[in-house]
Amino acid sequence: MKPFAYAVAEAPVQAVHQLSARPGAKFLGGGTNLVDLMRLGVESPELLVDVTRLELDRIEPTATGGILVGAGVRNSDLAADPRIRAAYPMLSQALLSGASGQLRNMATVGGNLLQRTRCVYFQDVTKPCNKREPGTGCPARTGAHRDLAILGASEHCIATHPSDFAVALAALDARVQITGPAGDRALALADLYRAPDEDPSRDTVLDPADLITAVEIPTSREAHRNSLYRKARDRASYAFAVGSVAAGLSLAPDGTISEVRIALGAVAHKPWRARRAESALTGNPATPEQFRRAAELELAAAEPLPDNAFKVELSQNLIVAALSTLAGVEEA
């Protein structure tokens, strides 16, 4: 870890200014990923601007009936919030399935969204990695890739985004509020992450001095309330997902699907919103057969590698299992 200066930000605009003024500066939130990466030599900021003392730690209702979550809210506080638990169960469950109690007490909402991939090559500075050092190559394709992407990857990078929380936010159509050098703006979470394409080094569309200040969760609907997050992993707890799904479902009085929301985790560089599956299901009967067909349709685009090919079936099964639970129907 290189020596670095440290400053406590007092207001978002000032924090953004501090970063704009000093290339090599970074915001410090909970530190659960940044400090880890600094110790590995993956990140070496010259200045850390501590944004945890900004007043970004509120969970407040919005004028339109949604909920605005400050970017500094700790994961554990958000997961325990009774409004979140009642109106967006998938969100609370996603948070609680991530990391450990200690890390959830530290990790912030904003930092969770911006955490980096846990690909073992990205984290090892003695090895090439296009995400860490563009142009050096991707050893994961022929190396350890069991945990890596099957959807939306490029020949340059097959990293997965590690967040559980972001998967639920994607399914909820959450928006991200940003204060940047050019002022304030908001983005759909779906538009926050970039595809790896030719340059996997940039995970998001954000400018280095952009500060996420809040996440806006839309007004709760039936498909938000009747929702769940299901995560499959190699340990019963304290492990990143091998596959996960955030799903929400509402049924019309005739039993057909009026709204369905599905996002997959651990399969792509971003939370993977399963739009194809959603449109195939909407208006159709809520049966396991329909769920299976839609899941297969969604995963048809998968381009797995030898050691992660199982994620195709795993993700399909997660979709079918989650929707069957939400619809109250038995799987075959």
Binding site: V120, Q123, P139, G143, A144, R235, S237, A239, F240
Partner: peptide, 25 residues
């Protein structure tokens, strides 16, 4: 312990990627 044929080391050399049983297991 996943040996990496290209680099020659155990690729998953930390406690996040080399899993040992936790309390919930």
């Amino acid at each position: 312990g996943l040996i990496d044929p290209v680099f020659g080391d155990y690729a998953n050399h930390d406690l996040a990627s080399y899993h040992v049983a936790g309390c919930a297991d």
